[in-house]
Design a protein around this nucleic acid. Structure first.
Length: 196
DNA sequence: GCCAACGTTGGC
DNA sequence: GCCAACGTTGGC
């Protein structure tokens, strides 16, 4: 069978919204600084991903249905994602990773010792899914949230690729889609000088 | 540490 | 199915 041939199920769109786009660029948030949740440190920054065997890790712990649906229904092998550092001293985009395994059951939902244990999840009817990501590279420079916000506000007023970026229009979503225009604009920033 | 924004829960 | 109360996210 051809890879991804059973797309009827995986590619179905929420609410049958015909206007929904199928994305192939993503932004995924993780916390690079130590924080204890349910007695467990949830720290996982881009350096932690880089240190993993083969620089691959499962993106576990997502406990929001919209974020999960993006991973389960739309993320495909080869898609690129920004590694975003959240809830830290300097929030922003640190680097690029690649999806290397499509969605499968997030085992941590059944693990009482995990920070994101979900007592309502049942083994025969899992609620949460994850993908595997591989470190690709750091951006040539860290792109701080403040800079992205600057362009977002400017583009909202005068037009531009970041006018509707989910980072600000769906700020709390931990797995976000980006249009190709948004992606390209942000990648282009690494060669520009940061804002003073 | 504060708290605004927003997602989830549960009573009715 | 509404919506108030509550919980979480995440910038500041």
């Amino acid at each position: 069978m051809i890879e991804g041939a059973d797309d009827t199920k995986k590619a179905r769109k929420p609410n049958g919204d015909a206007a929904q786009w199928n994305y192939c660029h993503w932004l995924m948030k993780s916390e690079p600084e130590s924080r204890i949740e349910n007695g467990i440190d949830v720290k996982f920054g881009i350096e932690d991903l880089k240190s993993e065997p083969e620089q691959i890790a499962c993106w576990d712990g997502v406990r929001n249905h919209q974020a999960k649906n993006f991973m389960r229904d739309q993320m495909r092998i080869g898609h690129k994602a920004f590694f975003y550092h959240s809830n830290c001293k300097e929030p922003g985009i640190a680097g690029v990773m690649e999806i290397v395994k499509e969605s499968y059951v997030d085992h941590t939902q059944f693990d009482k010792k995990d920070a994101h244990y979900d007592r309502t999840a049942k083994e025969d009817n899992p609620r949460w899914f994850m993908v595997d990501v591989k470190y690709v590279r750091h951006l040539k420079r860290f792109i701080p949230l403040t800079e992205l916000k600057h362009y977002h506000l400017e583009h909202k007023s005068n037009g531009g690729p970041l006018a509707k970026i989910a980072l600000f229009t769906s700020a709390r979503l931990s797995v976000q889609p980006l249009s190709s225009e948004e992606w390209d604009f942000i990648v282009g920033l690494e060669d520009a000088e940061g804002l003073k």
